[in-house]
């Protein structure tokens, strides 16, 4: 088993953090895991993406050609990565920011108004955790519990303890969203 997950969006949307929390949870669950960011002259508002590979054997390449799950936090990310998603895979689309249709009939598509949910929860920055909650559910490898712990540890060490509760809500909302699947 080797599963690739790509998180992609604007810089500042918490793309790298969402991937890191997932990688950390997978590690705690005993999986082999790699996390690889896009790197270089990146800036806030530019594009950002990261790839997480979760496997039960040592991971060879941390680069994934055909991810099983794509989280597209904005339109350009959807255009760039959706053709590469594996057949039968899952695309989670941020319906708050993405208006274009996904031109794939052979994958599952989950439209979630990530930013609207985050706004509702009172913290616009937690859209990434709503997406991560849905990703964990779609992945089906482990429960949300290790993800909640990993999120808490990630935020706790960055002096953002006060954000833990709202991010917990965000993860739970995302996790419960899979019934919207079409």
């Amino acid at each position: 088993m080797e599963t690739g997950i790509v998180f992609a969006g604007f810089g500042g949307q918490g793309i790298l953090l969402a991937g890191k929390v997932l990688a950390r949870a997978a590690m705690e669950e005993g999986f082999e895991v790699t996390w690889l960011p896009s790197y270089g002259p990146e800036m806030r508002g530019g594009t950002a993406n990261c790839t997480v590979v979760i496997a039960d054997e040592p991971v060879g390449s941390p680069i994934v050609d055909t991810p099983w799950i794509l989280v597209a936090m904005n339109g350009p990310s959807l255009e760039r990565f959706s053709p590469r998603v594996a057949k039968g895979g899952l695309i989670i689309v941020n319906a708050s920011l993405v208006s274009q249709k996904v031109e794939r009939a052979d994958v599952r598509i989950l439209l979630i108004p990530l930013n609207d949910i985050a706004q509702e929860l009172g913290e616009p920055r937690c859209a990434n955790m709503v997406a991560l909650g849905a990703t964990v559910r779609g992945l089906g490898l482990f429960s949300l519990d290790p993800v909640l712990v990993a999120m808490e540890e990630e935020l706790g060490t960055r002096g953002r303890e006060k954000l833990v509760e709202v991010n917990r809500q965000a993860l739970l909302r995302g996790y419960s969203f899979l019934n919207a699947l079409r």
Binding site: M27, E32, V33, L36, P37, Y39, V59, P62
Partner: peptide, 10 residues
């Protein structure tokens, strides 16, 4: 190399 430098692993 850049891949090993940038990637995270346990």
């Amino acid at each position: 190399d850049g891949m090993l430098g940038q990637m995270m692993e346990p």
